[in-house]
Amino acid sequence: MKTVWRAVGLFWLAPLVGEFLLGNQPVTELPSILLFAPMYGGGALLIREVARRAGIGWTGIVLLAAAYGLLEEGPIDQMLFNPGYLGLDSFAGFALVPGLGVSVSLVQGTVTLHTIWSICVPIALVEGFAPESTRPWLGRLGLTVVALIFTLGSTLLGVMQAVGFHFVASPAQFAGSAVAIAVLVVLAFVLGRRAGHRRTGKPVPSPLRVGVVAFAATSLYWVESEFLPDDWLPEWVSIAWWFVLFGGTTAAIVHWSRGKGWGPRHRLALATGALLTYAWAGYSHASDMDNVSLPIALLGNTLFALAAGILVLILWRRLGTPRGVEHVR
């Protein structure tokens, strides 16, 4: 029953982080989690279960999470294709993918938000309750039920978006996103199986340092994308900066994770650093809400941030002092 409760926890935690902690939804709209959970929670749970069954570790989880991000914002809600989705009159001035009319910046944002916060952070937090185990939480029946819930929930949201925006992407756009998603899924299985066999034996930095790096890198991303003027850098320079920031951070994490002593405390540190970034970034989103008053919006974000902090403190308390070297992937 403990594994079932972990699965249930991930199912609800993913939309709470992805929508409410970020400030996209006010606390008054908490019942709407019933609409978001099948897609967010179902997707996170499917990715975790498939990755653990296939033995593709965190490399596989990250790549499957990126595929999920493209699936959600591409074929499901079509944000990547619809110029009017974010209140934009057009994609004019945006760096576009040739032939698809898709903004490279929007793709980067989609991959960043969903890979890190919608999928990986919730999985890392819930796995923190049993860091020594990488076994599946669900049997075949449970996995089938979750897959069905995810499919039905995502389909419902997709239809609602298409009807609400009166927009349907072109066949080329659907096909292009499908190819990109398929490539990421294949890479998840190929690279995920290879990653677990590469160990350097070198010592790793402390969990505190790892957490600080995660917080700094994700905060820099939010500062550049949300708080600086849109034209402070040419768009292709901003796109290149994204590759430098996350490419360098990813390379450092991959290098550290192969070293001697990398374990649950380091993974929890990564999740904690990223979660703290969402907690402060959520206040900027909350201040832009037009469906609730500013005090209510900020109060809601404070409550969600406190809840996130309590969860993290509980997990760190459970881990306690490390008893030895751990190599759980």
Rank of each mutant, 00 (worst) to 15 (best):
E49Y: 02
L86M: 15
F165L: 13
A172L: 15
W256C: 02
G69M: 05
N291G: 13
V102F: 04
Q161F: 14
G176W: 01
A51T: 08
T218M: 07
H327R: 13
D77E: 13
A217Q: 05
G101A: 10
T3W: 13
G139W: 12
G23E: 01
V163N: 10
I296G: 03
K260R: 11
G247M: 12
E127V: 05
G282Q: 03
V126R: 07
W241Y: 11
L298M: 15
A307D: 03
P75R: 09
A251K: 09
E49K: 05
L10I: 11
P207S: 04
Y221F: 10
A65F: 06
A279C: 13
A178P: 06
H166L: 11
R140E: 12
A65N: 01
L63I: 13
G142P: 04
E72M: 10
S238L: 10
G139H: 11
R48F: 07
D77P: 04
G259L: 01
G164M: 05
F91T: 06
V237R: 09
A217I: 12
L64A: 08
V312T: 05
V325H: 15
V121C: 00
V8F: 14
P234D: 09
L298F: 10
F243K: 10
V159Q: 00
P26N: 00
V292I: 05
L152V: 15
W280A: 06
G9T: 03
I47C: 00
G9H: 01
V145K: 00
L35V: 15
V97Q: 09
A175R: 12
V62F: 10
E224T: 10
T112H: 13
A180E: 03
R265M: 14
R323L: 12
A308I: 07
G211R: 00
G60N: 03
P75I: 06
W222D: 09
R53M: 09
W117I: 11
L113V: 15
A195W: 11
S206K: 10
Y40P: 04
V163A: 12
L106R: 03
S133W: 02
W222H: 12
A66N: 05
G192K: 02
L80P: 04
H285S: 08
L45A: 04
M1F: 15
F227T: 12
I253R: 00
E326Y: 11
A172Y: 08
T112Q: 13
L303H: 02
A65R: 04
V179T: 09
V213Y: 02
L71H: 02
P264T: 04
L298W: 11
L21C: 05
T249L: 14
L70Q: 00
L35Y: 14
L191F: 05
E132S: 14
V27D: 04
S133E: 06
A297D: 00
W280V: 09
E29I: 15
P26C: 02
S90R: 07
T144C: 08
E29F: 15
C120F: 14
A297Q: 01
I61C: 07
N301I: 08
